[in-house]
Amino acid sequence: MQSTALTYLQKYQNQIIEHWDHQLSALRSEVEIKASLEKAVEHTNQEYMSLILQTARRNEEDSLEGLKNFTEQYIQTGRSLTYFTRALQGLRQAFHQQLKDVPPEDANILDVYSELNQWIDNMNNFLVSKYIESWEDTLEMQKLSLLELSAPLIPVFEGITVMPLIGSIDTTRAKLIMENLLEGVIKNRSKVVLIDITGVPIVDTMVAHHIIEASEAVRLVGATSILVGIRPEIAQTIVNLGIDLTKFPTKSTLQKGMEKALEMCNQKKIEM
């Protein structure tokens, strides 16, 4: 911030904070919060005001770091971006009110107001950027967690494991399926792996290619894969596309695939 606006800010900081605190109190009253959280929200307002004003005095990376940390902690509480943007609008109104009450003595009021506005806009852009980055990181972590859950390898009998696949398969998920398959086969000492595509809505050339690659990788580590859950419409699509699935066994249902797996492992099915 330029020296003229900064001098004005420092000189009337208490009055500006008073105006701004009034704006934040009005904002807080619009949000439904429990009485037990009132003090916590008030403390948040005070910390936010303090960090914002620090950046005016030292608009350097180290002063912005505190504001960045505050933003990340704030996001973890589940509160929205509205607080940041509307709070900065409240600061803008506080400046406007103070400039109306006490115009600068040795400077053009429009120049001071323009500098203060520019500083607030920079803070707003910084906060929005960090808020978005933090959410993107959170979403990426959640996406990876969901991907891991969406490609489980389940041991069912000695030497037999099942991988049920649900939903569409893209390149990223196919890579995870491959990794889970290989790690699971070795960890569980599997002889047969049943890849169940009952829950896969579309099997096109790319999906079939990924499944063939995964089956071939399983074969290379000493196990056999059986593709199960091939519905009539999927079988017709595979034939129409000219996809070759003759290199490994296929079954229409998981039950039939399990019977085949038990036979391959020299285990008998016991009727209950």
Rank of each mutant, 00 (worst) to 15 (best):
Q2T: 05
S3V: 05
A5Q: 06
A5C: 08
T7H: 14
Y8W: 14
L9N: 01
L9Y: 09
K11M: 07
Y12S: 04
Q15F: 14
I16P: 04
A26N: 05
R28V: 01
R28L: 06
K34A: 07
K34P: 00
S36I: 14
K39N: 06
K39V: 12
E42K: 12
E42Q: 08
H43I: 00
H43R: 05
N45E: 01
Y48A: 01
M49L: 07
L53K: 04
R57H: 12
R58E: 12
E60I: 03
E65D: 02
G66L: 00
L67D: 01
L67F: 10
N69M: 09
T71I: 13
Y74H: 05
Y74N: 01
I75G: 03
Q76K: 15
G78C: 03
F84D: 00
R86D: 09
R86C: 06
R86H: 13
R86E: 09
A87D: 00
Q89M: 10
Q89Y: 08
G90D: 06
H96W: 12
H96S: 08
Q97F: 12
L99Q: 04
K100G: 08
K100W: 14
D101H: 12
V102D: 05
V102M: 09
P104E: 07
P104R: 11
A107R: 06
I109T: 12
D111S: 05
V112H: 09
S114Y: 15
I120H: 08
I120P: 02
I120G: 06
I120M: 05
D121Q: 04
M123V: 00
N124M: 14
L127Q: 04
L127I: 15
Y131A: 09
Y131I: 03
I132Q: 09
I132T: 03
E133M: 10
W135H: 15
L139I: 11
L139T: 03
S145C: 00
S145M: 10
S145Y: 09
L146R: 10
E148F: 13
L149M: 12
A151G: 01
P152F: 11
P152D: 00
L153V: 15
P155N: 06
P155D: 03
V162S: 05
M163N: 03
S168K: 11
T172W: 04
A174S: 13
I177M: 15
V185K: 13
K187W: 08
K187V: 01
V192A: 09
I197K: 02
P201A: 08
I202C: 07
H210M: 13
I211P: 04
I212F: 14
S215K: 07
E216N: 09
R219T: 05
A223F: 12
T224M: 10
S225W: 11
S225D: 01
I226S: 04
V228G: 04
I230Q: 01
G242W: 10
D244N: 14
T246Y: 08
T246W: 15
K247L: 13
K251C: 07
Q255E: 11
A261Q: 05
A261I: 06
L262I: 14
E263A: 11
E263L: 13
N266P: 03
N266F: 13
K268T: 12
I270K: 13
E271H: 15
M272D: 01
